[in-house]
Design a protein around this nucleic acid. Structure first.
Lengths: 380, 380
DNA sequence: CTGAAAGCGCTTACAG
DNA sequence: CTGAAAGCGCTTACAG
């Protein structure tokens, strides 16, 4: 005999019981001002007495608001995204928003579904970290719900963007390795196409971080050696271990490794250990993301802290503002680049933890690109 | 000029456009049988032409179903829970359910909120992994929504349970260490109260796993030495590193460590490395949970695979059945114990990966406990 | 299959 | 503040 089968207690019941109008009950529940304390008490007593509970579906039908937002990430089991989700949930909580998490697996098809599928209307807005879709799919992002994009996969879409300071941070990470006197610095994580850079247009974390790496080499007067680029996809530990392992077993010689994310770095560390290569003595190693794990690796892993909490906070703030603002029709969007820091630990010869450098972010308005245009902002 | 401000396209509009009744449109959308193909095509063409989209809030108000379930875990950034959430989302997807994730931080107050707060009605049911609430709070679990409990913190609550095979698996893990000839096996993770066991009633992963450890010692004719219990709370890497570090620095002598979860084990590994203690030569180490990380630790970490995917699948299945069944009023609930396996890796002297033993699970009906009664099922 | 209509439980403009 | 009522967009029993 569950309550669910019975007629629900409604606001009208509460109003009758308390001897007030429905409007007053609604006012009490929604915390509107100008209610006499006595009236409020009476209503609250009636709510308790009748066991009344607000029906959220009814409210939503009326207000067209769900109070929820969606966070769509590739995979929750990747520590970076688990930590990001954690941070987004906390930030949303502060604003009274509830977070729905979608996993896309980094597949373009799932990302499109998240943007315009049936579930889209479960929430008032979307924070999406695309991996499968690219700038070429820009039209897919023109949806009539508030949208904030994360990462560097897509540019020129009609949405606010929050991105890491990839080029500057990668450059600083490379400079850190150069500062240790390392000469042959491998990069784990680019794919074959990143190394080429079709038409010079840069998108994707790999391409941007690679550009930072090349910047650093250039400034130091070092030659860029394509043989030191070690492709690895996806950016999981297993791929990092396999890629570096194969490289080393094939006679590859390096004295430092810049892994394009921490999962790859942890995999690389595993491959180095397995071959009895000393870290940092023989090979120095740095990752990117500064996930919790790196503090407990042996040796502890140097990494780039890309401002995960700032990303979460900014994304929720921007989305919330768009939701409150009511429309997504403004032709002007904002691109926020977060502050990042290079953090040295044992894997680059520092005991304990030391902030080696900081890369300030920025916040700039971006005028919507015509859908046909290419995005020239990030040419090398 | 966003669509959100305009009057929405409704089923009535579609019906008018297609020249059919609203009922027919509803039938098409809900995939009911007995619709002539021609009619279906006409309706679908009208839906496309008008850009119609079903209003989920309206449907929910009518059907009292949300199509969503809540998963409440302590923290998403703990790898075990990130992996569990990942698995639950996949299982729910298969059944057309969407998952809302709540983080409780393991705080009793937040857990109570999840059980009966305003957000409870956002979804049709709840999978909760309690950490703060105990069997003493059993009354809090008597809610009128379908509920599945995870873990071993709470017994006798009016809900289905899915738990790991803690005692048997911990016993097997300890036997694995004994089989290596280890004599002084420390346990990281119990709290002060677990070691005592008030009134002999056992709840909590720590107590159950500790019982398995003692079982194994007893069967092997070894004495139990309370000095080898190393308290560590919460079960994070940092706590594991600190706890074992302090123990070793205080002159503690061990040749093996059983960490009550993998995070503690990874922290312990860090503490051992920091003190140049060789693993597994000097100290063998095994964890519990078999999270992804342990495969990439150096050495790779032995662990207990507790059946995470089975837990996710079973929990979603049970919850789904309760939701479809409509009520939670049956006095009979089910307790599912999953199959587990002890997996040996380098930290216990195995190169590669080897399943050392398997512990079969079970599925038993449980009659609801009177709220006043104590739970005698798991006395030592 | 159709057609007309009730009702889910809110919020909110309206008249006082 | 009150009171009576419209309307959000569905689903579904009802009569055909």
């Amino acid at each position: 005999m569950s309550d669910r089968e019975l007629r629900a207690v409604t606001m009208a019941d509460v109003a009758r019981h308390a001897g007030v109008s429905v409007k007053t009950v609604s006012n009490v529940i929604n915390d509107y001002p100008h209610i006499r304390p006595g009236t409020r008490d009476r209503v609250e007593a009636s709510i308790a007495a009748l066991g009344y509970r607000l029906n959220l579906s009814a409210r939503r039908l009326r207000t067209r608001r769900t109070g929820m937002i969606t966070l769509a990430v590739p995979e929750l089991r990747l520590p970076y995204f688990a930590e990001l989700a954690d941070a987004v949930i906390r930030e949303a909580d502060v604003r009274g928003l509830t977070v729905l998490i979608e996993q896309t697996g980094g597949r373009a098809e799932r990302e499109r579904e998240v943007l315009s599928g049936a579930r889209r209307q479960l929430t008032d807005g979307l924070i999406l970290s695309p991996l499968g879709l690219t700038s070429a799919d820009r039209a897919s992002f023109a949806i009539d719900t508030p949208l904030v994009l994360l990462g560097e996969r897509v540019f020129g879409a009609p949405a606010d963007h929050v991105t890491m300071n990839n080029v500057a941070a990668a450059r600083a990470a490379t400079e850190h390795l150069l500062g240790l006197g390392r000469e042959r610095i491998a990069v784990i994580g680019p794919s074959a196409t990143d190394t080429a850079g079709p038409s010079g247009v840069m998108t994707g974390s790999a391409t941007l971080r690679l550009a930072g790496y090349r910047d650093a080499l250039k400034s130091a007067g070092r030659a860029f050696d394509p043989a030191l680029l070690i492709p690895a996809v996806p950016w999981h530990r297993s791929a990092g271990a396999e890629a570096l392992g194969t490289f080393l077993d094939g006679g590859g010689q390096v004295d430092a490794v810049f892994a394009l994310n921490d999962a790859l770095a942890l995999g690389a560390l595993y491959a180095l250990h397995a071959r009895r290569v000393e870290v940092p003595e023989t090979v120095a190693l740095i990752g990117f993301d500064d996930v919790d794990d790196v503090r407990y690796a042996t040796p502890t892993l140097s990494s780039v802290a890309p401002g995960r909490d700032e990303i979460a906070r900014t994304a929720v703030e921007l989305l919330h503002a768009r939701i409150e603002g009511g429309g997504t029709s403004d032709a002007e969007y904002v691109r926020v680049v977060t502050d990042s820091r290079v953090i040295a630990r044992q894997s680059t010869g520092t005991d304990g933890e030391r902030v080696v450098s900081e890369q300030p972010g920025s916040r700039v308005p971006v005028t919507e690109q015509p859908l046909g245009a290419s995005e020239p902002a990030f040419r090398v």
